[in-house]
Amino acid sequence: MTIWFGLLLFLATVVGMEAFAYAAHRWVMHGFGWFLHESHHRARHGNWELNDLYAAIFAVPSIVLLLGGAQLGWWPGFIWIGAGIAAYGAIYFGFHDVIVHQRIPTRYLPKSAYMKRIVQAHRLHHVVETKEGNVSFGFLVAPRPEDLKAELKRRASGRIRAPRAFAEK
């Protein structure tokens, strides 16, 4: 396998993971997996929440593909795909846990229009504390905040909490 094809697989996997993350968030985490994800829509007490188990669950395919491709003689493309999954996980951690939820203290303030948009979209996702009625399930691709606010207003059903400071320390 050429390096160029491997890099293409890697990049396609990173991009494809956003679609996977959207689907997993919308139909698993806000569906039958709510029992784990609900902790993420509540104030966190301490460093960990039950929702953090999803990081371990989603790391398994990456580890298996990396191990299989590198050590078990599977198709070499699996190494690139496993690495793409791991890279998306690292990007997600940086954006979601460090920048948005500030689980690691930082002085970073979003300045670019893109960063402001994804932070605002995720915060708008959190104004609904139940598993139904949410907006913005993706993370690296987010609808315009104005569209999300309009959709939340249209859905207003008593499930939207009053605005509050977002810090969850």
Rank of each mutant, 00 (worst) to 15 (best):
T2R: 13
F10T: 03
A12M: 15
T13D: 01
V14P: 00
Y22C: 01
A23S: 14
H25Q: 08
R26D: 06
W27D: 06
V28N: 06
F32K: 14
F35Q: 06
L36I: 06
H40I: 04
H41C: 10
H41Y: 09
R42T: 11
R44Y: 08
N47M: 09
N51S: 08
N51I: 00
L53E: 00
F58K: 02
S62D: 03
V64G: 04
V64N: 05
G68K: 08
Q71K: 14
G77T: 12
G77I: 08
F78V: 02
I79C: 01
I81Q: 02
A83Q: 05
A86K: 04
A87S: 14
I91A: 10
G94V: 14
F95L: 15
Q102Y: 02
R103A: 04
L109V: 15
P110N: 11
K111Y: 00
K116S: 06
I118V: 15
A121Y: 03
R123H: 15
H125N: 05
V128F: 00
K131V: 04
G133F: 04
G138W: 03
V141H: 04
D147C: 01
A150Q: 14
K153R: 14
K153I: 07
A156Y: 05
S157K: 08
I160W: 05
R161D: 12
A162W: 07
F166D: 12
K169G: 12
